[in-house]
């Protein structure tokens, strides 16, 4: 068992970073945590501090003001860490990619492990993405 496998062997804790988004993906992430989808049964939960998290969920296009804060949050995370870009905006910038304040999709700023496209991705898609993440690491 490598060091990385050891780190991700048990419950993954999530930190959610909502960039300049339309709120859809944020709500779908919260939907995953509530009763119908309930990812807490797998030991995943949202935590308040980036220092406690194993997985960083990023959604929304990143604007100029968010960029340095995203970097700051990423630097605070204890490595190794898994990064998930959620939604069309997180993956590519989506409909806001031509906007005046757009500062690049997430993978231009920090390394991304899994992309979950969709506008917004269904909670099932987010769960499938997390499962792929667990198999990939």
């Amino acid at each position: 068992m490598g060091f990385k496998d050891f780190c991700f062997k048990k419950s993954l804790w999530l930190f959610h970073f909502g960039g300049a988004s339309c709120n859809n993906c944020d709500i779908e992430i919260l939907d995953c945590l509530t009763s119908r989808y309930d990812v807490e049964r797998f030991g995943m939960k949202l935590v308040g501090s980036p220092r406690h998290a194993d997985v960083l969920l990023v959604n929304g296009s990143i604007n100029k003001r968010d960029k340095k804060r995203l970097l700051e949050v990423y630097n605070q995370l204890a490595k190794p860490v898994l990064v998930v870009a959620i939604g069309a905006c997180g993956c590519t910038g989506g409909i806001f990619a031509e906007g005046i304040t757009f500062a690049g999709p997430v993978d231009k700023i920090i390394p991304v492990d899994v992309y979950i496209p969709g506008c917004p991705p269904k909670p099932e898609a987010i769960l499938a993405g997390i499962v792929k993440l667990l198999n990939k690491k």
Partner: peptide
Amino acid sequence: TGYNHRGIEKLSES
């Protein structure tokens, strides 16, 4: 504010 500014009014013109 400004963390969520996406320039939608300008985008709409294009």
